[in-house]
Structures are given as structure tokens and as C-alpha cells.
Amino acid sequence: MIRPFLAVVKKELGSVIRDRTIVISILIQLFIASFSSGLLLGVLSLYDADTILQFSGEGIKIGIVGGAEHPLAGFMSERGLNVLPYATLAQAQAAFQAGDVLAIVDAPQDADNLTEIKLYLPESDTVSSLVRMVIQEPLKQYENALRAQKGAEVRYTRLKGKPSTSFEFVYSVLLPMLMFFPAFVAGSMSVDSLTEEVENNTLQTLLSAPLTINGMITAKIAAAVILSIVQCTAWLALLELNGIDIQHEGWILLLALIVAGLSSSSAILGAVLLKDRERSQFIYSLMLLAATALSTLANISPLTTLSRLAVGDTYTNGWAVIPFAAILGGLYWLLTKVSRRLMV
């Protein structure tokens, strides 16, 4: 029993390696990973005021009309901008023409009702949106100060923290993507592998070997799962090498394994019922979409579990993997019940 089972697993793995399809799959993952982190890098350096200020805060010179002791001037220099005071707007504009300042803030002393200040920006889209990004925070602080003067107290204004985008990206996007994408590929591969046997009429031959139909299906699932777990292990090792701290690696790999099992079992289930590739792939994609949507709605998403395991959340441990294992068990049981329909 076990020998033919292993033979089928070996055959499946062999065909994947020979076809070099797995190379494309790894290429895709590599591309997505590096592309999305490239995107993040670009976005961070262009949209994140902290990053911009960290690298070029001194270089962003802003002229202010209304005195160096104006509260807004204080907020701006506190933020790391280079603030140059001017006595009149005309002088400031002359400095702007000469290229001494990038932008001008014309801030009159506080009025009674509405405080109106004017901001003069250069025409260039790139520079003006840069200035608007870095000046946003001081303007908000000034606004809060004005609110306080008028008796509208705002809480939580002094929070600082550190820019969290990279951290959130790594643990909630990059890691789940690398752990679950091989699983989706595994499902797709299972569909192709089974329907190809059906459409080429090789299934009967395969079953003449001393192997039950459930054994054959399980072998196909096992091959897909093995393949995805190898990829996951490699990605985890690579991430660790890059200095990304990941907790609970064992549980994470188990979760990835379960998700790969879930996706390939459900893919095989669809293929058993429909028997042709076109419809099976369609149903499989629908099931993936549905499962993603439902698990997000029901708040038991493996994505969240994975992220929490990886950051070492105190309330999340190996037990969090159990529900998914249970679902996998149920799905596999269902599969063994309907697998006979392949023979008809």
C-alpha cells in the first residue's frame, strides 16, 4: 500500500521538477515579494513625512512671514524643517525667486475667529507635494493649539511612536504572501494533475496499480503539500537571513502546511466533481475567493493567525492552528466520501 503511494508522490514531484513549472512559480513569488517591497520603499520615501525629513529635513527651507516666534515656526523647526523668518511677504518672495526657500508661509498674528494663513508653493508638482507632506503635521499641531485657545481640547495630541509601515508590511503582507502563495499554487497544480489524468484517460491505468482511488488522490495532495512546504521553509530561512525576526516558526510551517492541504483538497474536490480542467479551475478560484472573504468576515483568518504567531503575540500559540486542522480533517473526510465519482 505504502509503496505505490510513494511512487505516485514521486511521479508527481518528478513531473513538476522536469517541467520546470516550479521555477516559474518561484519566480512569481520572488517577483511579488521584491516588487511589493520595492513599492513600499518607493512609497515610504515619497509619501512618508518622517522618512523624507530624516533624509532631507535640513534641505527643506521654508520662509515664514510673521516672526520667528510665531507658534507655527516653532512647530516646523521642532519637526526638523529649516525655517527662515522674513519681515514682509515681498522679501520672502524675493528669497523664493532667488531659490533660498522652497515655499513661503504667510502667517498673520492670531485673529479672533478664523485664523487664515497663506502657503505659497512652487509650481512643480513634485516639490509642492513634498512640501505639503512635510508641512501637514506642523499645521495640524498649530490647529490643535488654536483649538485649545478656543476651549476645544483635543486628547492624544502628543503621541509619537515610530513609523510602523515597514513592520506592518513585513508581518501582515510579505510573510503571509510567501507562506500562502505556494499553497494556492499547490491547489491549482492538483487540479491540473488530476484533470489531465482524466482527460488523457490515464486514470484507469494508474488505478490498475495496487492503489485505491483515495490513496491516489492523497498521493497527489501529498505531493502538492510537500512542494509548498519546501518553498515555505526556504522563504522562512531567507527572511531570517535578512534579519527579520520570526517567532513560532514550527507553528507557522504547520499552519502553512494545513493551508496548502486545504487548498489542494478543495481543488481536488472540485476536480472530482467536475472532471474537466476549465470548470475545476474556475470553481477552485471561486472557492479561494469565497474562503478568503468568509474567513475575513468570520475573523478566523489564517492570515491574522500567521501574523500574530510571527510577531510573538502572547494570546496566540499553537492552539490557534487547531481550528484550521479541524477544517482540513472535515474536508479530507468529505473528499474520501465523494472520490468514487471519479470512476463513473
Binding site: 487664515e116 502657503l119 499645521l139
Partner: peptide, 13 residues
């Protein structure tokens, strides 16, 4: 006026 006391007019030079 209390909640939103600040207006910023943006001009391009």
C-alpha cells in the same frame, strides 16, 4: 469655528 479654527490658502508661484 472652535473645532476647525484654521484655514490655509494655498497659492502656486
Amino acid at each position: 469655528e472652535q473645532a476647525f479654527p484654521l484655514r490655509v490658502g494655498i497659492n502656486y508661484l
